[in-house]
Nucleic acid binder design. Structure first.
Lengths: 338, 338
DNA sequence: CATCATGTTGACAGCGCTGTCATTCGTCAA
DNA sequence: TTGACGAATGACAGCGCTGTCAACATGATG
């Protein structure tokens, strides 16, 4: 019943009455083959249901059709949006996306990178700018398009697509101050490089206004989560009860903080203003709805792939640094009467 | 500076003073090579930083090192947990996971399957039992371990790991009834096969108790989301205001429904009981905390890969149907005074 | 001492494809 | 008419690895 034998170029060639190499050309650069022959080949391909063997192609060309993607976490909501964009853009391309999880560890990233390098990827997508030195060098010698996502930076390996977390956090803090809050605090979990830059933005803005206090900062090295947000708010209220607003380094923390504030009987936004980061879907629906900073995660993933495809196709005319920007979405959780 | 040349088996062989094939063996079946030679080879490998070329191996063996994973959605929280399990279990193995998105469409799934088939995957993970006929046949002739995840079924292609959505929904409904709710409703988005089975479980249990009413069912073909949950509750309250409890086909809907209930001034759990499905992390922290049905999604992903690895390694002694079960986690949102 | 099983190593071909030539043939200018 | 040239096609080798089988050494056996 099931024919186990693989259908090869030769089979197609025989059926079409041409040589294998011509079939190969007809498939890859149809313009090099006369129309008559191309038609014969196309119908032979269809008749036999021929599918090229990527491994053989890889071996012959020394190039794989893999686009490697290095992200710190598969589960984090933020990255899952990015991934969605990546898959959306790559689906119709002849390239395969291959994911590796760096777990927020530069060394893990480096070894994953090394593994990808051995496959001669068609392109690479990596998160941020905080590679190890060897990792960075590896990326530079990879000889394929490399897109750094999640943030913007001065000197990308090749191209980067993201936003300035520092500026975004500044804007969020500015919003809190504009709403009349005067004793802002900060909740930050995981404290990866981008979280740290957000903290720096918060601090810079708060210090400029003369309202920064170390006691109103609660951080954790653990992963962020809704539960964590609740815990951290409790801790913050214990150590700095005067706090009147919080900037959370992401939406999970903000949501957890909201729930906990309700349990503690702190009215939001009157007694406590809450601002998250990323603007996950839940923020708009929560009760009260939660202020957040919108980041364009889906677009980040999508353009990363689109840039790679454009590069591979000859041209990418865009700039080396693509800033997708940010937008503070003010909602009930910071809508205090001034 | 950067040596572009690939290091091959031959290079290692030359340095170790043996033939290429011996190096190949030392790497794949060390027990077939004498200890002295193995040591020389190992140090040559280390010295040169040799990394095997998977494409060449694939071509020579006719087998790739790819484990194909077909899931309906990359973003859905449920699958991201499963993915995490998959990545966790495959990370240390020599196999590469490759993902394809079926978008809840059997035809998309079939063509992805066809693509994978052409790569001779080492193993396949697919979601559920609702393949097209051709898809099912393809899986059967794939000649590699195939694990169906997300649900249990009578006749898996090979092995399946999941739970009975019907029974889980029955249990949730039983819980609502045991809490004294008498006019239960159902909120269901996306209505994929598993959602439908959950609905069937809800209906069966409600009908058995004589409390099922078609008017208290709200469904949608759109994807589920927190926003959707809010919308659907509003619709339900409009068309069947007598409803006193809802079973939501997943947690996003339940959370959205909770927020909307608060906005509508419906007290939870007194006026309205809410039960979700999957027990995402947020359920325990919400205020009030939300009852849900815990499913072991991480384990599903992990065991799928473990089963494949065991199969490839010679033996998988376990059953063909692995039921990971379910557990109703009762929380405040259904804790009504009887 | 011949015989044989066992353990270790190597030679060789070939997986399916493509890069690099070489070849053929028709066309057009001189 | 001739030569030159470009377009279309093909022959061949080889990408890096492994399956198969042969060769060899070793020590046990009769």
């Amino acid at each position: 019943m099931s024919e186990k034998k693989r259908i090869t170029l030769d089979d197609v060639a025989r059926l079409a009455g041409v040589s294998a190499i011509t079939v190969s050309r007809a498939l890859r650069r149809p313009e090099m083959v006369s129309e008559a022959v191309r038609k014969r080949i196309d119908s032979a391909v269809a008749e036999l249901g021929y599918v090229p063997n990527p491994a053989a192609r890889h071996l012959a060309t020394g190039r794989s059709n893999v686009i490697g993607v290095l992200i710190p976490s598969v589960t984090n909501n933020v990255f899952s949006e990015v991934l969605k964009g990546i898959y959306a853009a790559s689906e119709t391309s002849p390239y395969d996306v291959q994911l590796a999880n760096t777990r927020y560890c530069a060394n893990t990233e480096e070894s994953a990178l090394r593994l990808f390098a051995s496959q001669k990827p068609a392109g690479m997508v990596v998160s941020g700018f905080d590679q190890t030195e060897a990792g960075r060098k590896l990326l530079e010698t990879l000889d394929c398009p490399v897109v750094q996502i999640m943030e913007t930076g001065e000197d990308p390996v090749d191209v980067c697509v993201g936003l300035s977390h520092f500026h975004a956090a500044e804007a969020a803090t500015r919003h809190l101050l504009a709403q009349g809050y005067r004793r802002p605090g900060f909740l930050g979990a995981r404290m990866d490089p981008r979280t740290r830059r957000r903290f720096a933005g918060f601090r810079a803005e708060a210090q400029a206004a003369g309202v920064f206090a170390e006691a109103r900062v609660v951080t954790s090295t653990e992963a962020s989560s809704v539960t964590k947000g609740a815990e951290m708010l409790r801790q913050l209220m214990a150590q700095a009860p005067e706090v009147d607003a919080i900037f959370c380094n992401n939406d999970d923390l903000a949501l957890g903080a909201l729930f906990e504030a309700q349990r503690l009987g702190l009215s939001v936004p009157e007694r406590l203003g809450i601002c998250g980061f990323n603007d996950l879907e839940v923020m708009a629906v929560a009760n009260p709805s939660l202020t957040s900073v919108r980041t364009r995660r889906f677009e980040m993933g999508r353009s990363a792939i689109e840039i790679i495809l454009a590069r591979l196709d000859g041209g990418w005319q865009g700039p080396r640094v693509v800033d997708l920007g940010h937008e503070v979405i003010a909602r009930q959780s910071t809508a205090r009467q001034r």
